[in-house]
Nucleic acid binder design. Structure first.
Length: 753
DNA sequence: CGCTCATAAT
């Protein structure tokens, strides 16, 4: 199991505090209703019956329309709304501003802003609520610019906004991420002294958070004099959205100490923070706390707990919760699939990761067999699982399901498909999926650019980047990681620098470590160690473990041990969290015969509580997963596997293969003796040989490896791909290696162990 | 005005 990030949990929750449940909790939504006569109250009638009463034509009370119009919104039925609309006009209820405003709302919620606008235009008695409803409608239908325009019209016509209006305008600003306009609105709010009003303050806090201005969001929150549950919940989610999950937990504790009772929204927000932090201990406290407050029956909260436990590897507890839910909704299924998928991400060096991936696929199958219809969340999660398992066949089946259910055209599902095909090594199918997408987002473009880059297709990656800019999509920092890594692959220093400058100047993106890593990787690949080192010294960020590892890998290949040893000391000072960093150092010191350093690193590893490197590989053949450990002989085909490897090694030697000294991964005690002399069969070699024996001829071999490949295996597999004419794809913990005719898509100079 | 499940990386 991978070590989880350590979390400084802010104190513990005092469980003896006895909160009253907030009145706003949606657990107590039971509204008092029975003043109406059952015969004329449409809530007691069938929707059709109520409608036909209207079609008969007699005038009815305003209150009669309300539930039917509400029903129109819930059913998203425009035609029924039009029937009621006609009736309202015919009977003269049109002058009722409440009803007319409601009609604007109905059309807006049904996505018919044209109709909504018409109702508004034809209604001279429009009041502030009508204006606000129209604006809210535009925001609801993703037209924030029009909402702002309406706001300006309104001010010009001399109508003064209420805090509801301001709320709508601010959501429009959030939608556009328009800091400039939002600040103008903020100025307006201060001018009219609306600032401390609770709902306005909440909206402002949410706005600044969505624009990434966390500091301003917190300030807005702090200025609210009378904070309600929504204020606290908004501030807590703001922490999560801005990478400050820990502070969110602190706010929660503060909230409790101020006697503010959380509701179900607050709890789900807190749980998503716990997920981000893997703070399962904190989550457990919240769990018992929430039971005490009576949130137990709430299925969404139960689902959130289930998801948290699963994501943190507490499979049993999670399953108990899952099994306890009688009426499993799609959200619960999805959370279960996503939970297993996320576990895959965080348990890379364990076989458990693989099992959780296959378990996620099983859950997906169960879902499909039940009568539930999957949605975009189901598909994106399950496609992620296929990616991490490089399960191309299963991925194709899911692809077929997206077509069958009509989700193929969804942009998130489409992006997930592109990503899945890329990760499975099929750049052709990824390209096809990308081209066929009806709409694309930043993420779709970035996925495809990165895909080209990973497959060593630099020109296509850069061309696509230009296409993306021409299409008017603004690249973000991750897009630039893709672009710079593409340049790095091809050794295009000038272009890399040009894009790096473009990123800073034209797009105002502050370089982060990942961008520097690409540049350093580029210099190292070109053998320009000095420039790589100078860049490290020059950066305005503290170099991290990864950067030093890159340099060390370069120094080893180019035999610049002086710089290599220097970099090693810097790396050791950081007390790396990543076990692979220690393995890299051990490999280097072993190769140089520096036994003192070997034991020094070993000691530090023990002190830091870093375990051994777990090397395992797995291969997926026809719905079955086969796993291999290094030098494993327990497999029933072991004899054939070893014979094949021996044969291939001999042939490779005649083609010029020279074995490189390498660390034995799984067994510390024999390292000294064996590394220098005999060949070590790391797990991927066994998996590849097994694949050669069992995968139908001509088909690519796809292997997943728990840790980085070592230089020796990387070299021999290049020869194997040449000797057998097979395409071999190995996804290790760092990147995708696609071997074809003696070449690898990583361009060879990756920081192998 | 707040919420759970989702897609991109060296």
């Amino acid at each position: 199991m991978a070590s989880l990030p350590s979390v400084a949990v802010p104190g513990t929750i005092k469980l003896d505090l006895d909160f009253k449940k907030s009145s706003q909790t949606s657990l107590s939504t039971h509204k008092n209703s029975s003043i109406f006569n059952a015969k004329t109250d449409p809530r007691c009638l069938d929707f059709r019956e109520a409608l036909s009463m209207i079609e008969e034509g007699s005038k009815v009370e305003t209150a009669f329309y309300v539930p039917i119009l509400q029903e129109c919104i819930d059913r998203n039925s425009v035609s029924e709304a039009q029937i009621i609309h006609t009736h309202i006009i015919k009977t003269g209820s049109y002058e009722d501003s409440f009803l007319t405003t409601f009609l604007v709302n109905v059309y807006a919620k049904c996505g018919e802003m044209g109709y909504a606008r018409k109702v508004f235009e034809n209604f001279p008695q429009r009041n502030i609520v009508t204006w606000t409803t129209l604006m809210t409608g535009y925001v609801y239908n993703s037209m924030p610019e029009l909402a702002i325009k309406v706001f300006q019209e309104m001010l010009e016509s001399g109508v003064y906004p209420t805090n509801y209006t301001i709320g709508a305008v601010i959501s429009a600003c959030s939608f556009m991420s328009s800091i400039r306009f939002g600040k103008q609105i903020h100025g307006y709010i201060i001018k009219y002294k609306l600032d401390c009003d609770t709902s306005t303050g909440n909206a402002l806090c949410s706005f600044y958070s969505k624009c990434g201005k966390f500091g301003a969001a917190v300030k807005a929150f702090r200025r609210i004099k009378e904070k309600n549950v929504i204020s606290w919940t908004t501030a807590i989610s703001a922490c999560g959205d801005n990478g400050r999950a820990n502070m969110g937990l602190k706010l929660f504790v503060e909230m409790l100490s101020e006697d503010a009772g959380p509701n179900d929204f607050t709890l789900t927000s807190i749980l998503s923070l716990c997920c981000l932090l893997h703070a399962v201990g904190f989550g457990e406290q919240v769990h018992s706390f929430s039971i005490k407050l009576g949130f137990e029956p709430n299925i969404l909260i139960r689902t959130s707990f289930m998801y948290l436990y699963l994501k943190c590897g507490r499979i049993d507890e999670s399953r108990r919760l899952f099994d306890g839910i009688e009426d499993i909704s799609l959200v619960t299924w999805n959370a279960m699939i996503a939970g297993y998928a996320q576990m895959t991400d965080h348990a890379k060096d364990s076989l458990m990761a693989h099992h959780s991936g296959t378990e996620a696929l099983n859950i997906f199958l169960r879902l499909m067999r039940s009568n539930m219809k999957p949605d975009l969340y189901t598909f994106s999660s399950v496609l992620t699982v296929c990616s991490s398992l490089i399960a191309l066949e299963q991925g194709e089946q899911v692809h077929a399901q997206t077509i069958k259910t009509g989700f193929l055209s969804d942009v998130v599902v489409g992006s997930s498909l592109v990503n899945m095909y890329n990760k499975c090594g099929s750049i052709e199918r990824a390209t096809k999926a990308f081209v066929e997408m009806p709409t694309r987002t930043l993420i779709s473009w970035t996925s495809m650019i990165t895909g080209f880059s990973q497959h060593g297709r630099t020109r296509q990656a850069l061309d696509l980047f230009e296409d993306m800019r021409l299409a008017g999509v603004r690249p973000n920092k991750i897009t630039f990681v893709g672009v710079l890594s593409a340049c790095s692959h091809a050794g295009k220093v000038d272009e890399a620098m040009r894009y790096f400058e473009m990123m800073k100047k034209q797009y105002g993106i502050k370089p982060m470590m990942d961008h520097y890593s690409c540049l350093i990787d580029m210099y190292v690949r070109l053998g320009r160690l000095k420039e790589a080192f100078e860049l490290i010294e020059k950066m305005d960020i503290e170099p991290n473990e990864f950067v030093w590892s890159l340099l060390i890998a370069g120094c080893r290949s180019l035999k610049n041990m002086e710089l290599g040893f220097y970099a090693a000391e810097r790396l050791l000072e950081l007390k790396p969290k990543d076990t692979e960093a220690y393995a890299l150092l051990l490999n280097m010191y072993l190769a140089e015969g520096r036994w003192n350093d070997v034991s020094r690193v070993r000691k530090l590893m023990r002190e830091e509580g870093r375990g051994k490197l777990m090397d395992w590989s797995s291969i997926n053949i026809k719905d079955k997963v086969y796993s291999f450990k290094p030098d494993g002989r327990s497999h029933h085909q072991s004899a054939e596997i070893y014979a094949l490897l021996e044969d291939l090694l001999e042939k490779a030697k005649s083609l010029g293969y020279v074995s490189l000294r390498c660390l034995e991964m799984d067994d510390e005690d024999v390292v000294k003796e064996k590394t220098v002399s005999s060949t070590v069969h790391h797990s991927e070699k066994l998996a590849v040989a097994f694949g050669l024996l069992n995968v139908s001829s001509g088909a690519p071999i796809r292997v997943i490896k728990s840790i980085s490949m070592c230089r020796d295996c990387h070299s021999i597999i290049k020869f194997i791909s040449e000797l057998t004419g097979r395409e071999i794809i190995i996804r290790d913990s760092r990147r995708l290696h696609q071997f074809n005719n003696g070449h690898c898509s990583c361009g060879d100079f990756s920081n192998l162990l």
